[in-house]
Amino acid sequence: MTGYLELEGANGRVELDGSAFTAHFPNLYRNTFSFDQASGTVAWNLDRDANEISILSGPLRLDGALGEVNGQFMLSLPVKAQSRPTDLVLALSLHDAAVTTQEQLVPTTVSKDLRGWLNKGLGAKNSGRVESAAFIYRGSSYRADGKEESLQALGAHRNRQTIQLAADFTEASLKYAEEWPSAKNVDGRLLLNDGAVSVGAVKAKLWNIDASDIFVAVAPLAGKGSRLDVQAQLSGPAADGLRLLRESPLRQQLGSGFDDWHLAGNIAGQLNLTQALGELT
């Protein structure tokens, strides 16, 4: 990293001049964010009386593997170690990025069920593109082995963090449920709001069936696990409608009764699917 550095007592700032830049938020992400170019201002202030170290940025422009990113952050740390939680606000916007970028943006504090569904559903080889996306994180954290037990509970409480992601994508694929046909050529919007995620899409393909008015949601249950809901309007070749009866989990209820059927022409109908995800209590 290169730029202009200014120091004044316990305060300082650095002006990034467009050189390479890396950032790591270990309480949120396993991997480091790396950018080929970064420009903007990062400043810091140490206030011993307030027991606070503040690190904050102005608007940052970043270019790298994630695409074109604009961002801003504010980090507040205690001067006395483990005397209070660490607070972080992080805001990012992206343009023209791969759909798989979500795996790098969704933090590890999101439930395992939800992250697993996103990673499997959008897949590592997904060719879809994100036209634009916005991500916001605001939360507090405290070391699991910290000195104050009351602060451990405070940092771990689910209401101590807000995570929101909105992404408009095109020509993506979505594996919404195991053993069901993947949705292809999906144009839609992904929304993540804390523990729940939804996908709304104008159009998609299930084999040769046209799907429209698509809504997919994953929401946490009161105990462990989550619930998946899928709704869509379907129209297309009757032969592919027959495939849904033969080659999806519907076969477990219908058996082999449709194996000798042959259908021609077109069909129109509605898909409504609800199933549990993850481990339930």
Rank of each mutant, 00 (worst) to 15 (best):
S93G: 09
T109A: 06
S83F: 04
G116E: 01
G18S: 10
V199I: 12
K125S: 14
D187I: 10
I55W: 02
E149Y: 07
A20I: 14
V42Y: 00
K184G: 11
R61T: 10
D49E: 07
A264K: 14
E171H: 11
L90H: 00
D168T: 15
L280P: 01
Y142H: 03
G40R: 01
P181A: 00
S182T: 14
L280M: 02
K203R: 04
N119S: 09
Q72E: 01
A204F: 09
V99C: 06
Q231R: 15
N45H: 13
Q152P: 04
V218M: 12
A167H: 12
T108I: 14
A183D: 01
N119E: 11
T162C: 11
K224C: 07
A177F: 07
T86K: 00
L46D: 08
G278K: 02
S256V: 13
P107W: 04
P181S: 02
I267T: 06
D210K: 15
A65P: 11
V230Y: 12
G71V: 00
V79P: 03
L221H: 11
S132W: 13
D229K: 15
A38G: 03
L174A: 08
L88K: 01
R30D: 13
K147T: 11
R243D: 12
G269V: 06
L273D: 01
D36I: 06
T281N: 06
W261Q: 14
S150M: 09
T32M: 06
V79Q: 00
S140K: 06
L234T: 13
A23W: 02
G3P: 05
A217V: 14
D240L: 15
L62D: 02
R251G: 04
H157V: 03
L5F: 05
T274Q: 13
